[in-house]
Design a protein around this nucleic acid. Sequence first.
DNA 1: GCCAACGTTGGC
DNA 2: GCCAACGTTGGC
Length: 162
Amino acid sequence: MSALGIGFAAMNYWLMKSEPTTFSVDALAASPKQTTAWDGVRNFQARNMLRDEVKKGDLVFLYHSSCEVPGVVGVMEVVREGYPDATQFDPKDDHYDPDSRREDPRWYCVDVQLKRKFKRIITLEELRAHRRLANLKLLQRGNRLSVMPVTKTEWDYVLSLE
DNA sequence: GCCAACGTTGGC
DNA sequence: GCCAACGTTGGC
C-alpha cells in the first residue's frame, strides 16, 4: 500500500511452454490483438497456478519445447485471469475431458497477449550454461510442468541475455 | 526413436 | 491406501 493508499499487488513472473508446431510465438503474433487463451493445460499443479496464482498484469516467458531449438522466444502479458477452459467441454477437441462438469470445471486457462518477440531465441542450452539460473524451475531435473513461476531475479537475468 | 522422469489410473 | 502398469513430456 502506498502513502496515497492506493492498493499495489506485486507482479509475478511465469514461464509457459508451447510446442511451436502446435502454437508458436509467430502464431501468437498473428492472432487477433496478439492475444490467445492459454488453454489445453491438463496437469493439476499447472491448473492450480492458472486458476489461483496467475494474475492480470503478470509477465510470462513464452518457451518453445519439443523442437529443434528449445528456448525462450518472447514475453507475454496476462490480460485475463483464470477462467474455465472451454476445450474441456468440446468433444471434438483434443483436450476434451468427459469427466469435467460445467458446474464444476476441472480445467482453467488465462488469456495472454504478446508483448515482445525476442530478436533471437534464448536457448535452453544457453540457460543451462548460466550458474545464476541454476535454480530456474525449467532446468530442474524431471520438471515437466508447462506453467511455472520465475523469480524476478531470474526474469531480469534471462532478459539481460537477449 | 529412445528413454528418464513423473503423473494418473485402477486393481486389490 | 498401496503400488504396478500405463501414459505423457520433452531433451537428446
